[in-house]
Write a protein that binds this DNA or RNA. Structure first.
Lengths: 217, 217
DNA sequence: GTCAATAAGATTGTTGACAATCCTACAACC
DNA sequence: GGTTGTAGGATTGTCAACAATCTTATTGAC
C-alpha cells in the first residue's frame, strides 16, 4: 500500500515522463491539492519525493517546476550512468547467482535484436532497453546503488529516444548487450563493466549530438 | 540564508556525524519541534532532507531513526564511492582548468603526509582526508555528481576512522594521493581514476576488516 | 508459564487557517 | 522612454488541532 504522497508522486511522475507536463512548467501546490482532493501537506511531500528523483526542481519560496535539463546537464547524468551502470553490470557478472538471471536477459536481448531491425519500432526498442535495465538493476544486491540508478535511468529515458533513431546505432547497441550476456555467463566482471560503459557512452554521445542538432533549429 | 528546515537539518546532521545521536536511536518529531521551538512541519521536512543524505532512515508510520549501517551496507557505500570518486578524479584531471587546483591539492597532501607520520594524529589525518575530498568535489563541474558524492563521503566518515589506524595504511594512502597529484598535473584522466579507485578500495577493505573485528567482540 | 486479544497511550499523517514572501501591474520620477 | 517604487494578488512557509495508526502493557485463556 502506497502512502498518499507516494500515490500523488507516482501520478505526477507518469505525467512528467510522458511529457504531458512539459519541462520548465510551473507546478502549484494549491492546484494539485484541489485536483487530488487532498490538502497541501501530502502534495508538498510528493513534490519533495519527485525532487529526489530529479523530475521536479524546487526553488525556495518560489515553488516547484518540472525539471528542465540543459545539454551539459543531460551529459552529466549520462556520465554518472556510465560509472554506475559499469559498477552494476560488473557486480551482476560477479554474483554467484547470476545464472538465474541469464534466461530473462537472453530473452530480453533477443527481443531487442528483433525490434532493432525495423526503424518503426524505435519507441518499442527504447522501452525494451529500459525494461532490460530494470531487470538488471532489480537483480542488484546493493540496494543503495539500485536507488541511485532508477531515477537516473528515468531522467535519461526521454533523451535516449533521440539517440536510437539510426539503424546503425541500434545494431551497435544490440552488440553491446550481447557482449554483456557473454560476460555474465563467464562471470567476467571487468568485461561486463567495459561493455556497460561502452553502451551508455554511445547512448550519451548520440543523445548529446541529437540535442545539439535540435537546439540549432 | 538557510531555510528553517535546512537549519534544523544542519544541526541534526552535526549531532549524528559527531556521534551524539547514536545509530539506531529513535527520533521523534514532537521532541525536536519542542527543542527547536517550531511546529512539527519544518521538523518533518528536515528529517526528509537528512533521509536524502542517508543520515536518517524513515519508516512509514513508525517515525525516523539515526541510520544504522550493517557491514554489507558500509561496503555497498564504499563500492559506490569507488566508482564515483573514480569519475570525479578523472573529470578533474581532464579539466582544462585543473592547474588552478594543484596548489591547494599539493598543500593538502603535504599536510596529510606530515600527519601520517604520527599515530596520535589519526583523527586529524582522517579530517584532512575529508577536507581534501571536499576540495576535489568542490572543483567539480558536474553538479549532480557533487550532490551525490558529498552525502556518501559524510556517511563513510565515521567508518573511515577505523581503517586508518595503522601506519602502513596511512603511508599507503598518502602514496595514492601523491599519485593523484601527478596524474592531475599531467592531465592523465585514466591514471587519476585508477589512483582514486585504489585509494577508496583500500579504505573500504580496511574499514570492513575493522568492523568485522569489532563485531566479534 | 506462554501466547493471544484488547485497551490505553504515544506517535505519525492530514487538514485548514494564518503569516511571510514573492510576482505583477501600475504609477511617479528622472 | 526607461527606471524605480509601491500596492494588490497570488503562492509558499508555518502552525496547531484532529484523525489514523502503531506500540506497549495488561488481562485472560490454554
Amino acid at each position: 500500500m502506497l502512502s498518499l504522497p507516494e500515490q500523488i508522486a507516482a501520478q505526477l511522475a507518469a505525467r512528467i515522463i510522458a511529457g504531458t507536463d512539459a519541462p520548465g512548467q510551473r507546478i502549484m501546490e494549491q492546484a494539485l491539492a484541489a485536483e487530488f482532493k487532498v490538502s497541501r501537506g501530502p502534495v508538498r511531500e510528493a513534490l519533495r519525493l519527485l525532487e529526489k528523483d530529479g523530475l521536479v526542481t524546487i526553488l525556495p519560496r518560489r515553488g516547484a517546476q518540472v525539471t528542465k535539463l540543459s545539454i551539459p546537464e543531460v551529459r552529466e547524468i549520462f556520465d554518472i550512468r556510465i560509472a554506475l551502470n559499469g559498477l552494476r553490470d560488473r557486480s551482476i557478472a560477479e554474483d554467484p547467482e547470476r545464472l538465474k538471471l541469464l534466461p530473462a536477459l537472453e530473452a530480453g536481448v533477443a527481443e531487442l535484436a528483433r525490434l532493432a531491425r525495423n526503424a518503426r519500432h524505435n519507441n518499442e526498442y527504447v522501452e525494451q532497453v529500459f525494461q532490460l535495465n530494470r531487470t538488471l538493476t532489480g537483480a542488484l544486491r546493493n540496494a543503495r546503488l539500485r536507488a541511485m540508478l532508477d531515477p537516473l535511468a528515468q531522467q535519461t529515458l526521454r533523451y535516449s529516444r533521440l539517440g536510437l533513431a539510426s539503424e546503425l546505432r541500434r545494431r551497435q547497441s544490440v552488440k553491446h548487450w550481447q557482449e554483456l550476456i557473454k560476460a555474465v555467463r563467464d562471470g567476467d566482471g571487468e568485461r561486463a563493466q567495459r561493455a556497460a560503459e561502452a553502451r551508455v557512452r554511445a547512448s550519451r554521445d548520440e543523445a548529446v549530438k541529437k540535442l545539439r542538432e535540435l537546439a540549432d533549429c
